[in-house]
Design a protein around this nucleic acid. Structure first.
Lengths: 338, 338
DNA sequence: GAATTAATTTGCAACGTTGCATATCTTGTG
DNA sequence: CACAAGATATGCAACGTTGCAAATTAATTC
């Protein structure tokens, strides 16, 4: 029982508890981690002391010894497409890790194609126990890297990889189908899909489902795509032109809230009355558009819930669950306004 | 020169470099931290090896030994007032720490009054080297705690404390004054200030400046305040009523983008034409409203820049700079639309 | 009551780093 | 050429934790 000098610094460590209880460091450590070989009496004594002293294991100590960081990292895409996405995602993650040992570190990403470096860094330096990525591409490099390294991660979005991995995704196919059907039921004939970032798996899923649905319903489809870098003002200008086309669409589906706003602004300025001359359905993630235009139909993606789910999946993955058991889809929530 | 077994694991540590160069652990460590007592030749040798091997100091090791976490924490308020606030703030911080050793951890906050616990946790467990807080109150408990603990932090917002502390703030007084003057120049007579969270220092500053400016310009002031918990739909409803009041204001100033949206929606539904029947000026933080209503005046707060500045101040504070030298204001950027 | 066996507890080393006190090597001096 | 004085380099201990081998204590058997 050779316990070193008191240390006497403020911090409560295993040693403090050891001294308090007269037990050895190892015993205290073991006990706190629920060592079943210990006498019940000692376990109680340790637990009690730990509680009384407010002991919290030192992260650096644990991390150094075990390699466990108790950190999950969110790679945050810079895009502004889904308004309020970052905030809700973070709140969701925060909600899910509340009460656990985990902390959240956020790695903001500026350019999309730089992502590889970010992941490489995390992988090389074991700077987190798991990673959450968003805006996943069909053959996402980041996903490939983490699969190869057998590193725990979960993606917001699916991929085309053969090896299964954990993901949670918005069910875009259902979104597109629902939207087309709704427009058809409103009597629309010429429906247009305005869809952004074409590098994303989601993009592909939406387009495919859109084609299928319009064909089935006998509608005339039209697609406006690949405009992830188009500034909103440009988008708005295009919408004004669109409003004046002779054969303009009478139904529009938009998967980005930001673009929906530009679109709406432009169409209205072009003289169209929303919900009369033209019907619009958009993917809603924030409370903004409903506040402004309560009458416009939308289909909601609950980003907060996605954050919670992604985190839960990731934590299970970190604990060793098989990837194929960690794949979920979120059902789109139609918000028909009348 | 007793270097232990190779370890041979993948990770590059000081020991790897020591073995490579034939120097001792201490020498390598010292050299990497710029020990001037070392021969130039050795320093070069070490630097070279470190670079070749891609050495990155182990965070856990450093943290355990020195107590330095190389982490800054952002306490993220749950409010949705300023649209896109979280994302831009995080991007700003990310931009500022790029190239440094620092990581960003985000601590989402759900209830405002719980904040104390969050800070207490960080303080007790030394879980970051410094903290950024937002939505600061005049006698903010969190600020008090960190001042008392002499812990590095910076607040987005000022306080009334006597002891100086680092802050960066939007110059709300100028905002209010500018806005009032602009409305006056547009011929407005009855101006109303719609302002949210009354727990905030900002709130106080705006209200004071508003009163002063309206008095000076001979305008009839009116204030709608303390509506931080009013849901947007309610706000919208109030705006409709407002539009129908006989003595309704002909100029409105709003400090929250979210409320501006509710307000605009309601006023328009109430039959008013923006920019004609009523003039509006709002504090703009996102690209949303300009996209939708390019003709509405606003005054911009650059949240990204705020994130950068807050971080720079914090890093200087962590390095020991005096708080009184770390206090800056951001000038409001008027965006007059015609 | 001695010898086993089972039940508890503990010492030691290690994770990667740094700071200090000491050791080793060069020079220059008398 | 012995020796002090600088110039360089190193060993050691410690930060807080955990896992394992080994030690101690208690219970059982004959």
């Amino acid at each position: 029982m050779a316990i070193r000098s008191t240390g006497s610094s403020g911090r409560v460590t295993l040693r403090t508890i050891a001294q308090m209880t007269g037990l050895s460091l190892s015993t205290v450590s073991l006990s706190l981690r629920g060592g079943t070989t210990l006498k019940q009496e000692t376990r109680d004594k340790v637990a009690e002391a730990a509680k009384a002293l407010g002991y919290v294991p030192d992260r650096a100590g644990v991390r150094l010894r075990t390699g466990k960081t108790n950190v999950i990292a969110l790679v945050l895409d810079g895009a502004e497409d889904s308004i309020d996405f970052a905030r809700q995602m973070i709140q969701g993650i925060g909600h899910a890790i509340k009460g656990t040992r985990y902390h959240l570190t956020v790695i903001p990403e500026f350019e999309r194609n730089i992502s590889g470096d970010t992941i490489r860094y995390v992988l090389d330096n074991r700077t987190a126990d798991g990673v959450i990525i968003t805006h996943t591409a069909p053959r996402d490099r980041r996903v490939q890297m983490m699969i190869d390294a057998d590193f725990p991660f979960v993606s917001h979005g699916r991929t085309e990889f053969f090896t299964p991995h954990a993901f949670h995704d918005f069910h875009s196919e259902v979104f597109a189908t629902m939207a087309v059907e709704r427009l058809a039921s409103r009597g629309c004939k010429r429906v247009m899909l305005v869809v952004g970032d074409d590098t994303t798996t989601n993009h592909h899923n939406i387009v495919t489902a859109f084609h299928r649905a319009t064909a089935r319903m006998g509608l005339e489809p039209r697609i406006m795509t690949g405009m992830q870098y188009l500034p909103p003002t440009e988008m708005r200008r295009m919408a004004i032109e669109l409003a004046n086309e002779p054969d303009r669409p009478d139904g529009i589906i938009c998967d980005s809230e930001m673009r929906t706003i530009a679109l709406t602004g432009g169409l209205m300025e072009g003289g169209l009355r929303m919900g009369q001359d033209v019907h619009l359905i958009y993917k809603q993630t924030s409370g903004i558009l409903p506040t402004l235009f309560p009458a416009v139909d939308s289909i909601r993606e609950d980003v907060f819930a996605a954050g919670v789910e992604l985190t839960n999946l990731l934590l299970r993955r970190i604990e060793g669950a098989e990837p194929e058991t960690l794949q979920t889809l979120a059902e789109p929530q139609p918000q028909w306004r009348n």
